[in-house]
Amino acid sequence: MPKINGNEIRPGNVLEHDGGLWSAVKVDHVKPGKGGAFAQVELKNLRDGRKLNERFRSADKVERVRLEQKDQQFLFETDGMLTFMDTETFEQVELSADLLGDRRPFLQDGMTVKIEYYDEEALNVSVPQKVTCQIVETEPVVKGQTAANSFKPAILDNGVKVMVPPFVGQDEMIIVNTETMEYAERA
């Protein structure tokens, strides 16, 4: 595995550190007035979700891990386990719904997701960045309510609450950004 310097760590990098696999969530490069520069890195354990703040000097070497990404299709869910099918080999794999975290409601039947593997172990599931959902419940459109940044709450067909612009009504299809959990545009 390639070793990188502590100042080359970027958000999203997967590192082997303290005997575990960690994903760099946030990286701040700090140059104090006295002493050498360092990277203050917030790490998240890919296996158990623990968080860790670590300081890496530019002379420190860390192992960067390359994860294999595979496109897989979501089939169904049973007892908290999600079943996916490899689109090339048609092999099925069962993963815990906890891997998706708060993005779980956006997973739809037949959706193609990216699953990241380390050897044969699935570590991460990512849904597409933009997903189309239907608004089930929202306040009616009020004429004349055109204030600049006014948003109203809406409940989607998957149970997620998002803020939408006043012109969007009930039963409309909208596109939601799954990273920010916000309204993106009308579908």
Rank of each mutant, 00 (worst) to 15 (best):
Thr83Cys: 12
Val164Arg: 00
Pro128Tyr: 14
Thr132Pro: 08
Leu67Gly: 09
Thr138Leu: 00
Glu121Leu: 15
Leu107Lys: 02
Val125Met: 15
Asp28Tyr: 13
Lys61Met: 08
Ile9Ser: 01
Gly36Arg: 04
Lys161Pro: 01
Tyr118Ile: 15
Asn7Gly: 05
Phe151Gly: 01
Gly101Ile: 10
Glu77Leu: 03
Gln69Glu: 07
Thr87Phe: 03
Lys51Tyr: 13
Gln145Leu: 13
Thr89Glu: 06
Met181Val: 10
Ala59Leu: 07
Phe76Trp: 15
Pro2Thr: 11
Asp157Ile: 11
Gly101Val: 11
Ile155Asn: 00
Arg64His: 13
Glu63Asp: 14
Lys51Met: 07
Glu137Ser: 10
Thr180Asn: 10
Lys3His: 08
Ile135Ala: 00
Leu99Glu: 12
Pro166Gly: 02
Lys70Thr: 06
Leu107Asp: 09
Asn124Asp: 13
Glu137Arg: 04
Gln72Leu: 11
His29Phe: 10
Asn177Met: 03
Lys3Asn: 07
Arg186Lys: 06
Glu185Ser: 09
Asp48Asn: 14
Pro140Tyr: 01
Ser150Pro: 06
Lys31Gln: 08
Leu95Gly: 07
Gln40Asn: 09
Ser150Asp: 12
Gly6Arg: 04
Ala187Ile: 06
Lys31Ser: 14
Gly19Lys: 09
Ile115Ala: 02
Glu116Ala: 15
Val141Tyr: 10
Leu99Tyr: 11
Pro32Ala: 13
Gln108Pro: 11
Leu46Lys: 02
Phe90Val: 08
Ser126Gly: 11
His29Leu: 12
Glu179Arg: 04
Ser23Cys: 05
Ala97Tyr: 04
Val164Tyr: 06
Ile4Val: 10
Thr78Gly: 13
Ala37Val: 04
Gln129Asn: 15
Pro105Ala: 04
Leu156Gln: 02
Asp109Val: 08
Tyr117Thr: 05
Glu137Gln: 01
Val62His: 07
Glu172Cys: 02
Glu8Pro: 03
